[in-house]
Design a protein around this nucleic acid. Structure first.
Lengths: 342, 342
DNA sequence: AACATAGGGACAAATTAGGTCCCGTATTTA
DNA sequence: TAAATACGGGACCTAATTTGTCCCTATGTT
């Protein structure tokens, strides 16, 4: 397969471009269906007419169905889309890219999804799906999964296939982070547990409270119990954020934010802020998984994409050789840029 | 590979035409190099401008080199051409075609080359090369190869790779057939022998002589010896011709030709004329391999292409289940037409 | 009932592809 | 040695295709 594609790239490169274009269109229809011609053209930055021509073609090929309410992929279309992913993967030599990033970050594995999640929302969905598939593979009876909040992890949950598991427990990695209920760790925990028919426990802690209150809460028997189980979790899924964005989203005061940034914080993950060297220089006052425990967890899966997250990804050093990173093409290339210049 | 191509046919069907076009161009440059733009455009029945655009592209890809004396394939170009053959092969599902024809003709194997040798001279060359490769594979120490004359067999010899063999003997299957020295069995025998550094013997017999003289010659000790070795040959390569064409080329009298055709002769091979039912109804007065011996030869390789040869191919029944046919796409399709209607 | 959004029709504008002729040059031929 | 041939490349015009744009009617939503 690799050989055929290499030959084709040499002899009919236009067609390979066309292949990518149609793949993008199919993918976008799939993730937004039912969707109209005009919104598609906006999403893809392609002229309306172009979309129209391509859609007409895809319709003739029986890959999309055109209804008055919008366009939908047919069964065939979904199948082709799935098969195209593999082709695109090989075409862009992601395997090679993955290995490169994996070696630079000195982690267990990197999974790269085509595209740029900043520019194309479906890429984030693909990342979620890729991550979900990976997690599904390593899940086993008795697994204790912990996860953080955030839009990326939300996509993992969203795209997690409904499966039935045995004796699996899902926990939030931290208590009450973020304001948007949809992407809070607790919400995601519950949703994932439902999808895989697992048990779950939640951690309810108010935002931005004093350290004394925090300690009191942490010593509550019920909370304490969860924290104990949490430290035994064998699978952690977490998103990586930029320090500037996350501190704002957490509702920190401008002074605090300034202090944080001036101290060199560039990344945030599971409540810790990291500087460029990968040192944890600040901890959000909350309860949850302990930084020093993370490095002993058997499977640590980070998810983050987009060029602007690259610096944060590089900075987030959990010092766990078992870490797996799910990211996108744009971030991967930028990570290489950052680390190879040094 | 098959799967990738199947997906691509669904999602970028335009690719196939383009791929074939560029393949044809590369192939034609290769077989005619150094060649100019204009003669190429004539050869391929494509506009001069279109050749120009394509050649410019191929030049940019580093596949052809453009000199003042003409265009030449680069090393890369040759490599790509070779690899493209495989793709074209799978794309057109020749494997399937080959099996179909093989079953219809009830022979051992059919090897099909893309294209139509009537319209494109390079196709005949490809057939020759394909045949040569097959023969090369089955050659072994002590092989006795016999071959007929004709343009097709000439291409086999022409495209035979230079190899060194041990104890191989090459013989003409028949004496003195045809006028064109270049494609006489004797010439081809000598040429092939040189290419594979084998021994050879020749059969010199004048054309169209009386049967008495023929017998006298056949009893000459030297000739007799060759005929005896000939009957022991284990590899026969022969071309198949149309009865009408061959009888003319052999210089038969109009009366004889008329008689032959009215008796239903449609095919000629190694000096025998066959009717539609595959019965040998006439034998050219000459000496050489015996029809009834042919069916006992271990490897019988026939080569013939072009739509108008299909009928002759079907008619030429040597009743040897070991026969292998090397032909082109056009003939193969026509053979199926003829035999499936019945 | 009004509104938003869907696909499809239509057509001009823009771009691209293709046909044709010419020119300078290098090589072969007379 | 000179003419002839065949080469690639430049130029230009035309045909064909692609693309942008606007409008229309239908359908589902508020």
């Amino acid at each position: 397969m690799k050989k055929v594609l290499a030959i084709q790239q040499k002899i009919i490169p236009e067609m390979i471009e066309l292949l990518k274009k149609r793949y993008e269109i199919l993918k976008n229809i799939y993730y937004n269906q039912p969707v109209g011609r005009r919104s598609l053209s906006q999403e893809l930055n392609l002229g309306e007419r172009i979309i129209r021509t391509e859609v007409e073609f895809l319709k003739n090929q029986g890959l999309v169905e055109v209804n008055p309410i919008g366009m939908v992929l047919t069964k065939d279309g979904e199948k082709i889309l799935d098969e195209l992913k593999e082709i695109i993967y090989v075409l862009n030599d992601y395997k090679h890219l993955e290995e490169k990033v994996q070696k630079l970050l000195k982690i267990k594995r990197v999974i790269i999804v085509p595209g740029d999640s900043e520019k194309d929302k479906t890429v984030l969905k693909e990342m979620g799906r890729a991550c979900a598939n990976y997690v599904k593979e390593i899940l086993h009876e008795g697994s204790i999964i912990s996860l953080t909040g955030g839009t990326s992890v939300a996509q993992v949950v969203e795209n997690f296939p409904r499966i039935s598991t045995k004796d699996v427990l899902v926990l939030p990695a931290r208590g009450g982070i973020g304001r948007d209920v949809e992407i809070q760790a607790n919400t995601l925990t519950a949703n994932l547990a439902k999808k895989i028919s697992a048990n779950y426990r939640l951690l309810h802690v108010p935002d931005n409270i004093s350290s004394e209150t925090l300690e009191t809460i942490a010593n509550e028997p019920e909370v304490k119990e969860i924290l104990e189980i949490l430290s035994k979790s064998d699978l952690l899924i977490f998103g990586i954020g930029r320090a500037d964005e996350m501190s704002k989203r957490r509702g920190m005061s401008p002074q605090q934010i300034n202090e944080l940034i001036s101290k060199g914080a560039v990344a945030e993950a599971f409540g810790y802020y990291f500087n460029k060297s990968g040192e944890a220089i600040f901890r959000t006052p909350s309860i949850g998984i302990n930084f020093y425990d993370v490095k002993n967890i058997k499977n640590v899966v980070a998810i983050a994409g987009g060029k602007n997250k690259a610096e944060a990804i590089v900075a987030t050093k959990v010092n766990n050789p078992n870490m797996v990173l799910v990211t996108d093409e744009a971030a991967a290339n930028e990570i290489i840029n950052i680390l190879q210049i040094k």
